Simulated assay, not measured.
Amino acid sequence: MAKIRVLIVDDSAFMRKLINDFLSEHHEIEVIGSARNGEDAIKKFREMRPDVITLDVEMPKLNGLEVLKVIMEERPLPVVMLSSTTKEGADTTLQAIQAGAVDFVAKPSGSISIDLHKIKTELIQKVLSASKANLSKINSQNEPRMARKPLADPAQQKKNASGDLYSKRFSQESKKIVCIGTSTGGPRALQQVLTALPKDIGVPVLVVQHMPPGFTKSLASRLDSLSQISVKEAEDGELLQKGTAYIAPGGFHLEVKNVGPALAISLGQSPPRNGHRPSVDVMFESVSAIKNYSKIAVIMTGMGADGSRGLVELKKNGVVKAIAESQETSIVFGMPKAAIATNMVDEVANVDHIAETIMQYI
């Protein structure tokens, strides 16, 4: 099997050596070269034609964002950004994802991280995952809208239509809550969904986006500036308000609990689930215990299977409509595929139709 050919871009010789050593240990990866600054990166990108690039955000001569824009214009390919966890680093990283980067890895301790080994496994996994990303959808935000489509499995459609345990009693009058889970490609997908929800949506929205600490606040601020609804990083103990989306902070699981007639957020640092904290499964399982609410669960682009077990719990314990993002628009079709495999997804929708599908259920 052909190896994944990787070009490493970082202005620190020490970091280039560490990243090279880590990636070269994996039998599916071949490091074909490295670049010391932005100009060098563009030259080697053109000459070597790598499959994946790891790209430092902060560099002289041309920064990572400027290099990324050249790559996406000339010959789009999977790019994994390496970023510091400063607010500036987080903001630039989110701009890079919007500009076409598939994913990012946060350096543990600044631009030169002697403890880079802490993220060795994550870096390898993200390079492997990026190599399989659906790049045709990276720059397709302005394509014509495609219609949503019902679940492909006719038997499941019939089962749902018959009013079984999982589909009945979903009324327009009941109190509702929306919960969304996503990972790789998620910031772009969330922007398409949350910005399309109306200000008077009338329900709270919970979001788990796999991200490390330091990045979710920048994501929430960016989405809040673009959306009609309010978007904020969730805080422990705050009461859920209609028309607000709460994004789980990096490093914390997000759960909900009853406080009298209201619902409140509970943040915790119990062990990661599926390698993630926050975890979609943890959020879904928590929401499944809330009584007297109808729930709308959405699983979008991402690597792995986080959310599928939680979806089963949701469906067992209440009135739920489940939406999965289609393979056509997912950057990585891991999480939606795993959700669909449970046979408990009611609708598969292209990302640009998910907000409309949510509103139909509301």
Rank of each mutant, 00 (worst) to 15 (best):
G251I: 08
L62D: 06
P278W: 05
L165Q: 10
L314E: 02
E238H: 02
A355N: 04
V312C: 05
Q192E: 15
T92P: 11
K120G: 03
G237D: 04
P204C: 03
K87G: 02
I8D: 05
N139H: 15
P154W: 00
A339W: 01
A297I: 15
Q156Y: 00
P204E: 02
L7H: 11
I53A: 11
P187N: 06
E74N: 00
E58C: 07
F170Y: 15
M211G: 03
F333V: 01
L128S: 00
K17N: 13
F333Y: 15
A90S: 13
S83Y: 08
P187R: 03
G163A: 02
R145Y: 01
S230A: 15
L263P: 00
I229T: 06
F104D: 08
K199A: 14
I177V: 14
P108H: 09
S174F: 01
I32Q: 05
K176D: 05
G64Q: 10
L239W: 04
A96G: 14
L314K: 01
I42L: 15
Y361W: 15
I32Y: 03
L7F: 14
G214P: 10
L239Y: 11
G304K: 04
S34H: 14
N317S: 12
E356R: 08
R222H: 07
A338M: 08
N258H: 13
P198I: 03
L219Q: 12
V52I: 14
A130W: 04
P60G: 10
E143A: 13
S330L: 01
S225P: 03
H210K: 09
E328D: 09
D40K: 12
K120L: 02
Q327I: 01
G260D: 13
P278Y: 07
K168W: 02
E66Y: 00
T195W: 04
L267M: 08
V31L: 03
D164F: 08
E122L: 12
E233Y: 04
A189L: 05
Q327H: 10
A264P: 01
A339D: 01
P213V: 06
E122F: 00
T182F: 11
P50V: 07
R49C: 14
K132R: 13
M283Q: 07
E313L: 00
M335Y: 11
L223Y: 14
E39Q: 12
G163V: 02
